Amino acid sequence: MSMPQQDTDTVRVLQGLEDSSPSVRLRAALAVGTTPDPRFIGRLIERCAVEPEFHVREMLTWALTRHPASMTVPGLVGELRSERAQARSQALHTLSKIGDRRAWPAITRALLTDADDEVARSAWRAAVVLVPEGEEQELADVLVTQFGRGERETRLSLSRALIALGEGTMPILRAAMTDPDPRVRAHAIATERLSRDPDAGFEFAIEEAKRVVVLGAAGQEE
């Protein structure tokens, strides 16, 4: 007895998501997103945690956004407790794309300060999208504790997140500009300058901030 066509298609898609060829996995994720089916949600989330190719992960995220948030958000929130960093970062990324604020309580301080830079960056982006009105300042209080961490991309992500929270976070930002740690001061100063002149570029803002910090230290020594 042959399998019904629907079941045959389901098996083909599920096998495609696990195929050794990235292009086959990409097409499988595209197929799921083009014709959403709740039966695939769990497998899409599982695949996000292990998929090595960036463009395939993006297609998996897109496929998940094509399904009802009520069906995808609970599973994605569950992934935030995973020991696998990619599972946490990709779930956060997908939640930021879905934009359902019911996920906000799951964006914990632990995620915002995660030791893995990619997880932290994804958490910052998701938090800015999901933060309820009136809670921006509390979020900014946590974000400023991360000033000075990581390489350029991490620092830029943090600056962009704080800037996106709006003018209300400026007092917190200005307080960080006087922090005893020169790395924190430089990052805070660069963020403030970037907020005033987005076209200046982050590298320029960082170099200018470093000069301000150095001059300030020299003035204190005199």
Rank of each mutant, 00 (worst) to 15 (best):
P74A: 13
M71G: 14
I107D: 00
T108P: 11
S122E: 15
W124D: 02
L80E: 04
R121D: 14
I107K: 02
R125W: 10
P68S: 12
A69N: 01
V77T: 14
W124K: 07
G75Q: 13
T113E: 13
V77E: 13
E79T: 11
L60A: 12
L92T: 00
P68N: 09
S70P: 10
S96K: 07
L95D: 03
A126K: 07
V77G: 05
A106F: 06
L76R: 02
A91P: 04
E53A: 04
S122V: 08
W62I: 03
S122K: 12
E51I: 06
H93R: 06
S89T: 07
T72M: 10
R101S: 06
K97P: 03
S82M: 03
L92G: 02
A85M: 13
P52V: 03
A69M: 04
E79P: 00
L95R: 01
A123L: 11
R47T: 00
P68Q: 09
L95T: 06
E53S: 08
A106G: 06
P74E: 09
V119R: 10
W124L: 03
A127D: 08
M71T: 14
S82I: 09
W104V: 01
I98E: 01
G99A: 03
A85P: 11
V77I: 15
Q86M: 11
G78L: 06
I107A: 00
E118C: 12
E58K: 08
H93G: 01
H67G: 02
W104H: 04
R125C: 07
P105M: 02
A69H: 06
L92P: 02
V77K: 13
S122W: 10
W104Q: 02
W124H: 12
G78C: 02
P68L: 10
C48A: 09
D100G: 00
E83Y: 07
R125A: 14
A120V: 05
R66F: 05
R81N: 07
D116T: 09
D117T: 15
A126C: 15
E51Q: 04
A123R: 02
L76V: 05
V56S: 11
G78T: 04
T94C: 13
A49T: 11
I107M: 03
K97E: 09
W62G: 06
P74D: 07
L76K: 05
V77W: 08
L60Q: 12
P52S: 07
R102C: 04
R101Q: 10
A123W: 07
P68M: 10
V119D: 11
H93V: 01
D116C: 12
T108L: 05
V119I: 13
L92V: 02
S96V: 01
R47H: 03
F54K: 13
T94I: 04
K97C: 11
T61I: 09
V50Q: 11
A69T: 02
A63G: 05
